[in-house]
Design a protein around this nucleic acid. Structure first.
Ligand SMILES: [Mn+2]
Ligand SMILES: [Mn+2]
Ligand SMILES: [Mn+2]
Ligand SMILES: [Mn+2]
Lengths: 263, 263
DNA sequence: AAATAAAGTTAGATTATACAAACAATGTGC
DNA sequence: GCACATTGTTTGTATAATCTAACTTTATTT
């Protein structure tokens, strides 16, 4: 059997392997370390935060700033972040690559959970938080193939490719649209179960066409029309709905949707 | 995001829930604790060992006996084992139930990996060692349904049912058969990749009919006939091949085999 | 530029898991 | 029933990850 050495393991940095167009120093991170790297990647590249600080990271990870300072020193010793006292924090190239792999795993598992096990999009994030730490390249490659190499996850987030290409969708939100403009819903800015369930209640779905019928001058409430129905939403809510160009056919398939209308 | 609190968590023993015919005190075990419980269950109920000791456990888990002694004290404090200094070790009813759940998860994941992701039976154990610790009852129930409620895993081991019924197959081995006896291969006593690959090489498969053609009086080498082919195997090897009655139809399906011959 | 607020660090403690080395108990052979 | 081997425990140490409380540095505001 042999008990799980993963969390309490000594690290070796010897081996390295070349994947497609990038070299990854194969090391074994603890789950905690993976979570720190993932948080750093998200804060530096997915959110609009200019420079990530200890407090920000601590908040995101649900730990105290003192803990983060400590961890940062250890991550620096392992050449995973570049950082010095009171200075700003950034991932090394190698760590960025490792973080991308974690996000890739997270989103592929979420896709599996929704598409094959029938979970709703508000249930999968918590479970994927655990599955993302399972370490087997073979596993994730086969899962990817099993799913038909999906491009987006159930929340509309882009799934990094095997060779480590990671980019976030441009963050245009529903709250940025003016009256009489139309757009397609392509993502959400909040993956919490409560928010996603609220989105379900409102009737919004990824891939849906949205028409901004009006905006109240007094309180900025937005009236949108989806599926021919008129609905009123708040600015706060609209700021968490990402909009963009019409989804590609592949993306429609990834979401398990029918392209309504044509054919 | 919130980092994985699972491994380093304070434990609460307050809540309890009733499943089918058993009451389980819902607690959160660390991966390490789960591995100790699983090892204890396997040693006490699946192997022929009369009483489990610290050395035995240490060997099985790949740690030193001192570590086991330490852990046993902590498991006792949490009412997971009954044990006193120099005395013998046993799982409490509650811990047994928890251990069975881990084994259930392990075997369901192994089934998924073989059947749906195309892994070979020698590759899945290591990966399942990690997947078995993912904590979501909903997940495992849905996986079970997705797989069609399989009864046996890719190694022929029985999958515990949701209501916690766990039993091992009677351990009749190929080495126990006499000359001219026949039997069906139903399992293996060693799940290591190296052994399973050797079994593949030899040509043995679960569900196969085996005829013991002869046994050498001098060195006890066994000559068996499978699929019309004659093969010579050692006693050591034969002792790790479990034999039994013909597989049930359901079990054939679980293994993804065709019942050759009829129909 | 000084005062205050915010952000970040350090020191000291805790828990989980592991090890090695020294020690203690148990069991077996004669 | 003692000698010796086996088995199991204790003690002391280590690392990973966390906290609180006290402290320091940097940023903002007047
Ligand atoms: Mn997610
Ligand atoms: Mn995570
Ligand atoms: Mn296994
Ligand atoms: Mn395990």
């Amino acid at each position: 059997m042999c008990i799980g050495k993963l969390p309490t393991q000594k690290l070796g940095f010897a081996k390295n392997e070349t994947k497609f167009c990038r070299t990854v120093y194969t090391t074994t991170l603890t789950q905690t370390e993976e979570n720190y790297l993932k948080a750093l990647l998200k804060l530096t590249e997915e959110s609009a935060i200019p420079a990530v600080g200890t407090n920000e990271l601590a908040l995101h990870l649900g730990v105290k700033p003192a803990t983060v300072t400590d961890m940062l020193k250890r991550l620096r010793d392992k050449a995973l972040v570049s950082y010095e006292k009171y200075g700003k924090i950034s991932l090394t190239d190698n760590a960025r690559s490792l973080a991308i792999d974690v996000i890739r795993k997270h989103r592929l598992w979420e896709t599996f959970l929704c598409r094959n096990l029938g979970f709703s999009w508000h249930q999968v994030h918590e479970i994927a938080e655990q599955l993302e730490h399972v370490q087997s390249v073979e596993l994730i490659d086969r899962l990817d193939a099993f799913l038909g190499f999906p491009k987006i996850d159930p929340h509309g987030d882009l799934i990094p490719s095997k060779d480590g290409v990671f980019h976030a969708r441009p963050k245009r939100t529903l709250s940025m649209l003016g009256v009489s403009q139309t757009a397609v819903m392509v993502g959400v800015g909040d993956n919490s179960a409560s928010f996603l369930q609220y989105v379900d209640e409102v009737g919004l779905r990824l891939g849906m066409d949205i028409w901004v019928k009006g905006i109240q001058p007094y309180d900025a409430l937005i009236e949108i029309v989806i599926d021919g129905k008129s609905i009123t939403i708040s600015q706060k809510f609209a700021a968490q709905i990402f909009v963009g160009a019409k989804l590609a056919d592949q993306e429609f398939l990834d979401l398990g949707l029918d392209r309504e209308g044509d054919l």
